[in-house]
Simulated scan of single mutants.
Amino acid sequence: MAVAQRRTSKSRKAKRRTHYKLPKVTLVKDKVTGEYKLPHRVDREN
């Protein structure tokens, strides 16, 4: 098993983790109610 010989610096660790982020949430404005919701979702009408 590979074990690090030296400590990984904060900057090196941060460079590796630049892609570890949450995706931006896409919201769509509902034409009827005007509220924002996730796209491709069906409205519940009671």
Results as ranks from 00 to 15, higher is better:
Met1Leu: 12
Met1Thr: 15
Met1Ser: 14
Met1Gln: 09
Ala2Ser: 14
Ala2Trp: 06
Ala2Tyr: 09
Val3Arg: 15
Val3Cys: 15
Ala4Ile: 08
Ala4Trp: 09
Ala4Asn: 15
Ala4Gly: 12
Ala4Cys: 10
Gln5Arg: 13
Gln5Asp: 10
Gln5Val: 03
Arg6Asn: 15
Arg6Gln: 15
Arg7Ser: 08
Arg7Asn: 06
Arg7Phe: 01
Arg7Thr: 04
Thr8Trp: 04
Thr8Leu: 12
Thr8Ala: 05
Ser9Pro: 05
Ser9Leu: 02
Ser9Met: 02
Lys10Cys: 09
Arg12Ser: 08
Arg12Asp: 07
Lys13Leu: 06
Lys13Gln: 06
Lys13Arg: 15
Ala14Leu: 06
Ala14Tyr: 02
Ala14Glu: 09
Lys15Glu: 11
Lys15Trp: 06
Lys15Phe: 02
Lys15Tyr: 03
Lys15His: 09
Arg16Gly: 10
Arg16Ser: 14
Arg16Glu: 10
Arg17Tyr: 06
Arg17Ala: 13
Thr18Ser: 13
His19Ile: 05
Tyr20Glu: 12
Tyr20Phe: 12
Lys21Arg: 13
Lys21Gln: 14
Lys21Asp: 08
Lys21Asn: 07
Lys21Gly: 10
Leu22Arg: 09
Leu22Tyr: 04
Leu22Thr: 09
Leu22Val: 04
Pro23Asn: 08
Pro23Tyr: 01
Lys24Leu: 07
Lys24Ile: 03
Lys24Cys: 03
Lys24Gln: 13
Lys24Phe: 04
Val25Pro: 10
Val25Gln: 06
Val25Met: 07
Thr26Cys: 05
Thr26Asp: 08
Val28Thr: 10
Val28His: 07
Asp30Val: 01
Asp30Asn: 08
Asp30Gln: 01
Asp30Ala: 02
Asp30Ile: 04
Lys31Pro: 15
Val32Asn: 10
Val32Gly: 04
Val32Pro: 01
Thr33Met: 01
Thr33Cys: 02
Gly34Val: 00
Gly34Lys: 00
Gly34Cys: 01
Gly34Glu: 02
Gly34Leu: 02
Glu35His: 02
Glu35Phe: 03
Tyr36Pro: 06
Tyr36Ser: 06
Tyr36Thr: 03
Tyr36Asp: 05
Lys37Gln: 10
Lys37Pro: 02
Leu38Phe: 14
Leu38Asp: 04
Pro39Gln: 00
Pro39His: 00
His40Trp: 11
His40Leu: 07
Arg41Phe: 09
Arg41Glu: 10
Val42Cys: 01
Val42His: 10
Asp43Ile: 08
Asp43Arg: 15
Asp43Cys: 12
Asp43Tyr: 10
Asp43Leu: 08
Arg44Asp: 07
Arg44Phe: 12
Glu45Trp: 06
Glu45Lys: 07
Glu45Ser: 12
Glu45Ile: 11
Asn46Ile: 11
Asn46Met: 09
Asn46Arg: 12
